[in-house]
Design a protein around this nucleic acid. Sequence first.
RNA 1: GUGAUCGUAGUUCAAUGGUAGAGCCCUGGAUUGUGGUUCCAGUCGUUGCGGGUUCGAGCCCCGUCGAUCACCCCA
Length: 418
Amino acid sequence: MISKPPGIEDIFPDRVFKWNFILDAARNVFRIFNYKELIVPIMEFTEVFSRGIGDDTDIVSKEMFTFEDRGGRNLTLRPEGTAGIVRAYVENGEYNRLALNKFFYNGPMFRAEKPQRGRLRQFNQLGAEIFGSEDPYYDFEIISVVDSIAKSIGIENYTIQLNSIGCRECRGAFIEKLKEYYSLHTDKLCDDCRKRLNTNPLRLLDCKKENCRALREAAPVISEHICGGCSDHFSKVKMYLDRSGIKYKIDNYLVRGLDYYTRTTFEFTADNLGSQNAFAGGGRYDYLVEQFDGKPTPGVGFAAGIERMLLLIEESDIDEPGVDVYIIHSGGESLEKGFDVASQLRKNDFSVDLDPEVKGFKNQFKKAERANASFIVIIGEDELLKGQATVKNRKTGTQIDIGFHVLSSLLMSLIETQ
RNA sequence: GUGAUCGUAGUUCAAUGGUAGAGCCCUGGAUUGUGGUUCCAGUCGUUGCGGGUUCGAGCCCCGUCGAUCACCCCA
């Protein structure tokens, strides 16, 4: 038997329904906040990601599905959404059309990681990006959008972790201080952290090893080293959050694994996700557009994992509605009558199902049950003789007889008034 | 990529190295027209795959593939 590759899922209807519930809720939030949908390719030139995300990040250095196409071009299945959107934004000169753009997107992403709970090789994200303003209001707005989506799909018990990692200038100075400090203690660092000291010193703060954690206690703290501009920016973000009643926790050690972030970074975490505890994350990226040779344009955005949100609402009973009518018949003329009713109702936008094969009534009642039908129409020998069909309201159990000539129209009004 | 645990029917799980089984699901019947409760019967297997040890392997050993969880990292 042929199976699917590791870390890739088939999604069957019961999960698809919840999936669409999440997407619909998100789309509604995006509408409320006036974001427009953007659809960009799943494949890009590899350079889009190496330049956008950073060559030294784990994602680029060891997690991308990269291949040569038949023309010898170096392509990669997108590991995240932002880089491709920035590429599209720059390539199409969107900043010449509007000073400010608010986009949202959703779709599959690919990372060649070892799968575990909440971590897949093909996973789906929905996210948004704002281009064209460095106003802290927009940092708040992005967080507020995620918060609204989480609330509207019924996720409870999540925490918003918030940090500012500074801008081009002050971050550089902070990193120097960090390097200075950790260089004095290289003997106590783990192997990974010794490498990080050169490649990505900010990540030193993120290490979970005991020794490294202990060292962190006395390490320079970022909030004390960001410049006045960044500090002011961060205060305003917090002010907006406070005003709108969105609770958050400052986490000076929140460092994200993509190089493009500046100033505000945030994560939405939930306890019951296992060790992959973030279901959304994002932040500001004021230099990313110029890194793609675009006109310098600040930006801020987020991405949320659909499968992880699905894990969080798995227990909630969001049930797919059933069909309006299920038709039970005994073949021959009774099937023909049932067929006519089904056609009539379907033309009028009602949902109907039936099994054309002649089976026992018990079998058909089971199917009506499984289809979660609101009404069951029974057309058998007796009904044909009487010239009336039996209509049963499945929830109340009451049934009435209705003449065939008014059956369709009466059914429709019954469904609408129930 | 590293580590731990685990792979038996569609599914959930049994089976001191000695003939592969049960619940659920599914199909049919008890009930010649009223489903979600009973009762009865039936279908479904190269025990993930490949080697090895043994008179004999689902069970032990090696390899391989896959899954789960954790590390790493992130959504």
